[in-house]
Every structure is written in structure tokens, then in C-alpha cells.
Design a binder for these strands. Structure first.
Length: 475
RNA sequence: GGGGUCGUCAGCUAGUAUGGUUUAGGCUACACGGCUCGGGCCCGUGAAAUCGUGGGUUCAAAUCCCACCGACCCCA
């Protein structure tokens, strides 16, 4: 082992670790040289597509259909809902209009692109619910420092936009969106908290906003998905109206759900990774098992034949397998697949062939062991589960240890890289003071996955607390 | 919006203070050949940089000056 080639310590120097892993594992290339825009390389796209498929099939199995809307939005559409424009206009990329044409915006999100069409498509309660999603990029002209996959001016996500007859149905959808996200994050082994955002911190134009936050290694939280109840705030200006069973005109109640694919990838990379590179659970691993043949002079054929045989057996049980028979040295291959996070490795050399054994290696714990060849399938499937369990436990543990309860201003000021649980008065001014006086702690909202009862006065201002909230530094 | 730091092969960089023996050097990666193969071997050879762009000063500019472009950081 050559320590000088290991990555920096993830916990101590997260930024350095993150930049290096993105480059070394060939995930992104930042040399495109436009602020906030990076190139996604094949190793990243394969992970991203697995995340994307997971979410898309989950949406489809719950009655959504896929669409694709234009990337440009006429400014007049964007301006139809007042709070919405106000929230986004500053960071919209505009395409200057030619003489006599309308100015266009690159979509910062697609409500105002989609809802004019919804108005044309929805006439009757029979057209509802309307559940559509698209996968694609959106654009926001961030002025703050950008970080690949975490804060870009272009990002890749899914947005599902649903329309219902009434509030109850819409709120049921919000719960379903939360379920979809939880399900996916469990497959990725990521710990999370779900919060309802404060009144002033909602998505521009939403009645209610719910968000998923993951804990990054530097103690900041990363919002990786949101779902919003929009009420009739958009259906009024966009006139998305249906006739109900009594023949009465009604505005639809809408929801929108935005799981961030690039941010989920960032979370998987950051939360599971270590000083040797990525650590991927099976469900997001482009290669799940890599077979490294170890040739000895004169025995190459037997070794390769055995490797191929093992590969075939694994493919039969739908394991994404690769035999790396290139002429690099075995050691170089070991490091390479550890760098890109391949969860399991099987080494096959002369010894394995003659003893009818296989040498296994697990990326998450970096341990080797031997099993009888006949145990192959059982062993792989067993460890597939075990790896996910281990990553989940680790990640849950870190989240649990980061959450602390505080009761006073002083405790909050002294907190460092913690997720704070505190009583809160509910005032925006108070939240702004907190952010200003504590080097960036933001009130993220109240947990809905683990609700808490108020146990004292507002930890900041001392007045009566209305709720218990999470406060954290955030990306 | 205000302030700062920095642009040299694909990556990391030496050289810039004091302009001139530097054919702009090294390590990694890359290509070819050899030797190997149970944790990134080793040996040899090669290719690779109009020193971010444009202008200026000078006998002479990567080095000094100006402008622009780009990246990064800090503060509001």
C-alpha cells in the first residue's frame, strides 16, 4: 500500500477529497471552464442512469407517464404566478429576443412550461388525476460558489407534476412522493431526514414544501429531493380548470415532486466513499462483481476459462459481472475497481482452480475470504444484502450521532458541524439572526419522519416555541 | 454588489523575486519494446507546453507594464 496515493481524509478535508475522487474515478471533468457547468463522464452516467431508472420505474409503477417539455419558457409564462417569478427571476438564464420576438428563459424548473398545456389537456374530472413527469436538466444562474453535482448552474433531475380534483388527493400524492424517495434512498443505503420547510422557505408558489436532507461528511446537509403541494396557486393563473360531477368549474389541486438525480449521485459518492475511492451498493453499481484472473505462466487458459465460467453463472442470476483479462498487473486492477466502487471482487488463480475455491473481496469492508466454488451464487446474493445493510448502518449511525438537542443561544453558537434539534418560535427574523450569528446555521423545518413535541421556549429568542425544528449548515 | 488569489504538456508542478546556458526541467498519466503477473513492479525509448488571450516596454519577456478572458477563495 502506498499511502501517498490514497485520497485525502474525507472527514477532515471533504472538499479536497471530493474534487479528487471526481477526477480520479473519472466521474466529471471540470475543464469545460464555464462556471457551474461540468461534463458528466461515462463512469458517472452509469451510476446516474441506475438512480434515474430506479426513480422513473417507481413513478411509472404508481401511475405516472413520461413526457418531455421544451427547455425554453417564454417570459410571459414564467411571469404568470407572482411568487414564483419573484423567487426565480434573479437566477434565470435569459435568451435575448430578436426584434419582434418574445424573450425566452432557460427553464429553472418547469411549472410554467407545463401548466399552460395542462390547461389545454384538462377539461373534466375524468381527465384527473393527471400524473406526468419528465427527466432532464434545469438551469439556474447561481452566483455563489458552485460544486460539481452539488450546486451547479445546470442540474439533472426528475420533475413530476400532478393534478387532482381536490386537496386530499393532492396531499395523498405528496405522501406517495415521500414514499418513492424513501424507497430509493433505502436502496442506495442513504440515511436521510424529511422536513416540512418553514413558511418563508417554501418553494416559490407552493402551499407546502417537504424536503429530504442527507448529511454530508463535512457536517453540512444536502437537499436531495423536494415535494410540494401547490394548491390552486398555479391552476388559477394558468386556468387549469375542470368540470366536476355536478358540472361545476373547479381549479385542479397540484403537486410537484423533484428528486435530484445529480445530488443523489453526489450523496452516494460522498457518504459511502472512503480514502480508496467510491463504495457503491449493488443497486447503483455499474459493475457489481469484477472477476480478476491471476495468470501464472502456463496456466493462463485454465484460469481464464474458470473466470468465464463464473461470469456466466453470475449473469444467470442477473448480476452485472465483468472479467478483467487485460494485461495490467492484478494489484493495479484491485486498486482500479476499488476506486470506482465495485462492491465485490472475485480473484481466480491457479490455486482456486486446483482447489475448486474462489477468493472473494468486499469493497465496503476491504476484506478477503475463500469459499467453495459451488457456493458462488449463494455467497454473492448474501453479501449483496449484507453490503447494503452495512452501508445503511454506517450512514444511519453518522446521522444519528450528528443530531444534537440544544436549549440555548450559546449552545447553538458553539455547535460545530452538527444537526441541531431545537425549540423554535416560528419567526423568520429569528431564523435570519441565527444564520447571521452562527456562521450559517439554517432553520430547515420540522421533521415529519420523526415528529417531536416542544419541550421548552425558543432556543434563540426565549419566547414561546411553536415547534421543534432542525437547524443545520446546508449546501 | 465589494475584496482577494491564481492561469506553464492530459494532471500536479519547477522556473517569475533579480528579464539573458532552459533545447522551458521533474513526477504521474499516455504510446512503443522488454521483463513480469497472489496489492499500484521494474528497465529502456518516445510523444506531449505558440508559458490563458491581445497589446506594450526591451537588443532580449514565462519572467516587467496595461487590457481582456477564465478559474478559485473570502465578505455582504
Amino acid at each position: 500500500m502506498q499511502p501517498e496515493r490514497a485520497l485525502p481524509d474525507k472527514e477532515k478535508q471533504f472538499s479536497e477529497w471530493y474534487s479528487e475522487i471526481l477526477e480520479r474515478a473519472e466521474l466529471v471533468d471540470i475543464r469545460y471552464n464555464v462556471k457551474g457547468f461540468v461534463v458528466y463522464r461515462p463512469n458517472l452516467m452509469r451510476i446516474i442512469n441506475l438512480i434515474r431508472n430506479e426513480l422513473e420505474s417507481s413513478l411509472i409503477s404508481r401511475g405516472h407517464q413520461q413526457v418531455m417539455f421544451p427547455i425554453v419558457i417564454p417570459m410571459s409564462y414564467l411571469r404568470k404566478e407572482q411568487e414564483h417569478v419573484t423567487g426565480f427571476e434573479a437566477e434565470v438564464f435569459k435568451i435575448r429576443a430578436e426584434e419582434g420576438e418574445e424573450e425566452l428563459a432557460l427553464r429553472p424548473t418547469s411549472e410554467t412550461a407545463m401548466y399552460p398545456m395542462y390547461a389545454l389537456w384538462v377539461h373534466s374530472y375524468r381527465d384527473l388525476p393527471l400524473k406526468l413527469f419528465q427527466t432532464g436538466t434545469v438551469y439556474r444562474k447561481e452566483t455563489r460558489a458552485t460544486k460539481p453535482l452539488i450546486r451547479g448552474r445546470e442540474f439533472f433531475w426528475i420533475e413530476a407534476h400532478d393534478a387532482f380534483e381536490n386537496k386530499e388527493q393532492a396531499l395523498t400524492q405528496v405522501i406517495e412522493d415521500i414514499e418513492i424517495t424513501k424507497e430509493a434512498l433505502r436502496k442506495f443505503g442513504l440515511a436521510f431526514i424529511v422536513v416540512e420547510r418553514e413558511e418563508w422557505d417554501k418553494f416559490p408558489g407552493a402551499e407546502k414544501t417537504f424536503a429530504f436532507d442527507c448529511l454530508m461528511p463535512d457536517g453540512k446537509v444536502l437537499q436531495i429531493a423536494t415535494t410540494h403541494y401547490l394548491g390552486t396557486k398555479f391552476s388559477k393563473p394558468f386556468e387549469v380548470i375542470y368540470l366536476d360531477r355536478a358540472g361545476e368549474k373547479k381549479n385542479v389541486h397540484q403537486t410537484c415532486f423533484g428528486p435530484g438525480i445529480s445530488r443523489m449521485a453526489a450523496a452516494v459518492i460522498s457518504i459511502h466513499g472512503d480514502e480508496f475511492g467510491l463504495v457503491l451498493p449493488f443497486d447503483v453499481a455499474p459493475i457489481q462483481v469484477v472477476i480478476v484472473p491471476i495468470p501464472k505462466e502456463g496456466k493462463e487458459k485454465e484460469v481464464i476459462a474458470k473466470a468465464k465460467e463464473v461470469e456466466e453463472r453470475l449473469e444467470k442470476i442477473h448480476i452485472r459481472t465483468l472479467v478483467d483479462a487485460s494485461d495490467e498487473r492484478p494489484g493495479a486492477k484491485f486498486y482500479k475497481y476499488e476506486l470506482i466502487g465495485t462492491p465485490m471482487r472475485i480473484e481466480i488463480g491457479e490455486r482456486e482452480v486446483s482447489e475448486r475455491k474462489l477468493t472473494f473481496f468486499r469493497r465496503d469492508i476491504r476484506k478477503r475470504w475463500e469459499v467453495e466454488e459451488c457456493e458462488l451464487e449463494v455467497e454473492v446474493l448474501k453479501h449483496k444484502e449484507d453490503i447494503l445493510k452495512n452501508l445503511t448502518n454506517r450512514s444511519n449511525e453518522k446521522l444519528k450521532n450528528a443530531i444534537v438537542r440544544i436549549n440555548t443561544k450559546e449552545e447553538l453558537k458553539e455547535s460545530n458541524n452538527k444537526i441541531i434539534l431545537m425549540n423554535f418560535c416560528g419567526n423568520q427574523q429569528c431564523a435570519e439572526r441565527i444564520k447571521y450569528d452562527t456562521k450559517g446555521y439554517e432553520v430547515r423545518g420540522s421533521r415529519i419522519d420523526k415528529p417531536e413535541d416542544v419541550w421548552g421556549p425558543c432556543a434563540w429568542c426565549g419566547s414561546e416555541a411553536k415547534k421543534v425544528v432542525i437547524a443545520a449548515r446546508a449546501y
